[in-house]
């Protein structure tokens, strides 16, 4: 059987396209896996001290993000973070948040999101123990920065306003107490675990895997299409 150069060229092209389609199928398979991982509920690690999982002046490590932390210090500055997006279950809302700079021993500081902005600033004197969840700094503005407000919750925005060495990220407080153990009340906001936003549905991606792999198979058949066609007509009715 003689194989022509044209047929070999067709076969090579079909093979290359087929490999590309298999790669696209694998990509969808990886995305399905990512969706599955992203939607898994991860149990919270035990509460730990902020100093044990992060260092002032350094970027947060991925392991530190989402951790429940405890920190003690004195509030120094009050900021407003307007128009912050809040998510509670499937509901989304916008709120102005009260953010305070907590001074820690050793001339360090961390941003604490206490909750929804109140009508008046609550006066909190003395040492405070804060429990909450550690989040990475926000990277996109929620609003325009005016009158010293925080356009996003990011320690980099207040570096010029304090001499403290700041921890990266911020803590959303779930509870605060004085050094005597008295709880400080305010309107808290939810502090859910951050989930990576991988769009799509697991089975939807799996279905695309089948589509791409089927296409890869059909492309591989393409060089043999004419012979299949001849066999089809040869066995049955001829035109």
């Amino acid at each position: 059987m003689k194989i022509s150069k044209g047929f070999i060229a067709q076969l090579v092209v079909a093979l290359l396209i087929s490999i590309t389609f298999i790669g696209l199928g694998n990509w969808q398979l990886n995305r399905a896996h990512d969706v599955k991982i992203a939607k898994q509920i991860v149990a919270d690690s035990p509460l730990s001290s902020l100093e044990n999982i992060a260092t002032a002046g350094s970027n947060l490590t991925p392991d530190a993000i989402n951790r429940l932390v405890s920190v003690s210090g004195k509030y120094r500055e009050i900021f407003l973070a307007p128009k912050q997006s809040l998510t509670s279950g499937n509901k989304k809302s916008i709120a102005n948040l009260e953010v305070r700079l907590l001074e820690l021993p050793g001339n360090r500081g961390v941003l604490i999101v206490r909750g929804i902005e109140g009508l008046e600033d609550q006066e909190i004197i003395g040492e405070v123990k804060v429990n909450g969840r550690l989040y990475p700094r926000q990277t996109s503005d929620a609003t325009r920065a005016i009158n010293g407000d925080l356009s996003r919750i990011d320690p980099a925005l207040i570096v010029g306003a304090t001499k403290l060495e700041l921890f990266d990220g911020f803590i959303i407080a779930t509870s605060e107490a004085t050094k005597f153990g008295q709880e400080i009340l305010t309107t808290r906001i939810p502090a859910p675990q951050l989930k990576s936003k991988v769009p799509g549905n697991y089975w939807q991606h799996i279905s695309y895997v089948f589509v791409w792999w089927l296409m890869a198979l059909l492309v591989l058949l393409a060089p043999f299409y004419n012979s299949m066609k001849e066999r089809e007509s040869g066995g049955k009715v001829r035109p």
């Binding site: 549905n201 089975w203 939807q204 279905s207 695309y208 089948f210 589509v211 089927l214 296409m215």
Partner: peptide, 12 residues
């Protein structure tokens, strides 16, 4: 999208 994804191969 889910149903379309799974039934498109049958169309193909």
């Amino acid at each position: 999208a889910l149903v379309h994804g799974f039934t498109y191969p049958i169309y193909v």
